[in-house]
Simulated scan of single mutants.
Amino acid sequence: MSGTTDLDWFKSSYSSAQGDSCIEVAVTEQVVHVRDSKDVSRPAFAVGREGWDRFVRYVAGE
């Protein structure tokens, strides 16, 4: 995915200091980009904001 290197990526505050098993996200107006924090050279993927919101609510048990 081109253009993802200029995004502000962040990990959850729940991530361990070792950085294992983490993803990073970068939020834009239209989409949320997701990548593997252990290998940022791999392609990221993007999901629409509505889909991301539904995913987060599902994981939170709402």
Rank of each mutant, 00 (worst) to 15 (best):
S2C: 04
S2F: 04
S2R: 07
T4S: 11
T5F: 05
T5D: 15
D6C: 03
L7I: 06
D8P: 03
D8T: 13
D8F: 07
F10A: 13
K11H: 07
K11C: 12
K11V: 15
K11L: 13
S12H: 04
S12A: 10
S13W: 08
S13L: 13
Y14L: 14
S15K: 13
S15H: 11
S16N: 15
A17F: 11
A17Q: 14
A17R: 10
Q18T: 12
Q18W: 08
Q18H: 11
G19T: 02
D20A: 11
D20P: 02
C22L: 03
I23W: 05
I23G: 06
E24D: 12
V25F: 02
V25W: 03
V25I: 13
V27D: 15
V27E: 11
E29Q: 13
E29F: 11
E29T: 14
E29I: 11
Q30P: 02
Q30V: 09
Q30S: 14
V31Y: 12
V32N: 10
H33C: 14
V34H: 08
R35I: 07
R35W: 08
D36E: 05
D36R: 04
D36M: 07
S37A: 07
K38T: 12
K38D: 13
D39I: 06
V40R: 15
S41E: 15
S41V: 07
R42S: 15
R42V: 15
P43A: 13
P43S: 13
P43G: 10
A44C: 06
F45Q: 01
F45M: 11
F45R: 00
A46M: 07
V47P: 01
V47G: 00
V47M: 03
G48W: 04
G48K: 03
G48T: 10
R49K: 12
R49M: 11
E50D: 14
G51Q: 09
W52H: 01
W52Y: 09
R54D: 05
R54A: 06
F55C: 09
F55A: 10
F55R: 01
V56E: 01
V56S: 00
R57F: 00
R57L: 02
Y58N: 03
Y58H: 04
Y58T: 06
V59A: 15
V59I: 06
A60Q: 01
A60T: 01
G61L: 01
G61T: 00
E62W: 01
